[in-house]
């Protein structure tokens, strides 16, 4: 099958891309849509650096074919925040030293974002289990867990204040 036109909603915008069915979603995002936030760490479904959100699920985009993503709603780190308006999670990672080299960070934060949607008040153990599919070679995880817990607390406090 040659190139097809696939339509996906990426970070809230409808995008059309030309790709072969066998192309991996991570390369569609990085090379066709210029979304270089999600990284390629292992390309073998192990490291989680390529994590994006697809139809309400955290997925490793190196293990999704372009064709499978046709019609999907996708959120990448670029959809969560930007330099002028960091997402609470991004702010928390910055504040609590949740990153060193930053390679794992887009995947980590995208995954943490989904985790907090499903479990707004996680325990430390639940955070650790929740990010078990994301490897970090630098931080030793301690500060990543701290960052996510801090972001959760902040989101919950903001919610309470709003009520």
């Amino acid at each position: 099958m040659g190139k097809q036109i696939y339509k996906m909603t990426v970070n809230g915008q409808v995008k059309e891309v030309m790709a072969e069915p066998r192309e991996l979603l991570i390369y569609v995002l990085r090379e066709k849509l210029d979304l270089t936030g999600p990284h390629v760490g292992c390309e073998t479904s192990h490291c989680g650096a390529c994590t994006v959100e697809m139809n309400g699920m955290s997925v490793k985009s190196c293990t999704v074919f372009a064709a499978q993503a046709d019609g999907a709603e996708i959120t990448t780190i670029e959809g969560l925040g930007d330099p002028d308006g960091l997402h609470v999670l991004q702010e928390a990672f910055k504040e609590h030293h949740g990153l060193q080299c930053g390679y794992c960070t887009p995947g980590m934060i995208t995954r943490a974002h989904r985790l907090l949607q499903e479990n707004p008040n996680p325990t430390e153990v639940e955070v650790r289990m929740g990010i078990a599919g994301n490897l970090c070679r630098c931080t030793g995880y301690q500060n990543i867990v701290k960052s996510i817990l801090a972001a959760a607390a902040q989101i919950n406090a903001a919610k309470e204040a709003a009520e």
């Binding site: 479904s45 989680g48 699920m57 955290s58 999704v64 990010i131």
Partner: peptide, 9 residues
């Protein structure tokens, strides 16, 4: 089984 991302799919 595996990790959260694998289990969603």
């Amino acid at each position: 089984i595996a990790d959260p991302q694998v289990r969603y799919m």
